[in-house]
Amino acid sequence: MRYFITVIAMFFTWSASAQDWEDRSVFSGADTSQSLRVLSSTDTSFFEPIINKFRIAYPNVSVEYLVTTTAEIDKIFRASPEDYDVVISSAMDLQLKLVNDGYAAKIANVETPDWAKWRDSLFAFTIEPAAIVINKAAFLGHKIPKTRQELIQSLRARPALFQDKLGTYDVRESGLGYLFATQDARASETYWRLMEVMGGLGTKLYCCSGAMIDDLESGKIAVAYNVLSSYAKARKGQDTSIEIILPADFPTTMMRTAIVSDSTINVKNAENFVRHLLDIQSEGQKDATTSLPSLFLNPGEQTIPLEPALMTYLDRLKRKTFLLEWERAIVQ
């Protein structure tokens, strides 16, 4: 089958398109009239195996895969929902608000657990905890912290070493970073103390997990807080210099979610795409070809629940207050 599948990945320069995509790939199908536009925050490399499998099942459908940040996705999609068929994002709160505001179509009879869907419109397809990722070199001969509290102690113990060597999301830019930050803040006051400590040591702020891991590998930073463990794991396969720590005090676990645009004309194809995605990602069909974590939750584990409360920190006033406090802590 691979012979028939032509994968054309086109990398547009910043100025070539009206929209600035991080990445834009077109997977052509046999029939040019059937095409799907997928708006996503997930790197193409993670999604390519999934799209290829979808194209084996539906060879006629072309897939245009557009990558940008979660905050951009929300903005672009709200501006022209009819231009996109499927929206995939790691920012659960933004996705849930899209459904709440009526931008998503219902898909009937999708076999997925109740906690992994909302209103039969929003479907989770991965389970991904936020992690502390460290460069092992910085901790040679020292205890590797297992919790946020231990991280604070480590940072305080050797401030000179960690000065300007810390990184985390810029929550003002990244939707996922904001989700992680607000959920951390909701769970424990430790978050604010950590932010204050990190702020005092001059933390670098990043748009995305990929960039943070790049800098970790190159040794520019020694500790990155709230990195997507899935991205880190994918990178760790090649590199042994970094270590991924899932905080033992309380985990913050995100689910990547997909919706079908309510104004799409490719309803059938878009629905098939989401069903296919869930099929691949659901438990028992875990495929080695994709490096995205499957939708599998160990007993006792919890994710950020899909509920209207996710909209709390999207409130203009709440967001203003939160960002103000966050800036006070970290941008000193």
Binding site: G102, W118, R119, R186, P305, E307, P308, A309, M311, T312
Partner: peptide
């Protein structure tokens, strides 16, 4: 957070 959390229903009503 609980202001909206309490509005969670079995059928995921919109708020």
């Amino acid at each position: 957070y609980s202001s909206f959390s309490m509005l969670d229903t079995e059928l995921d009503d919109r708020v």
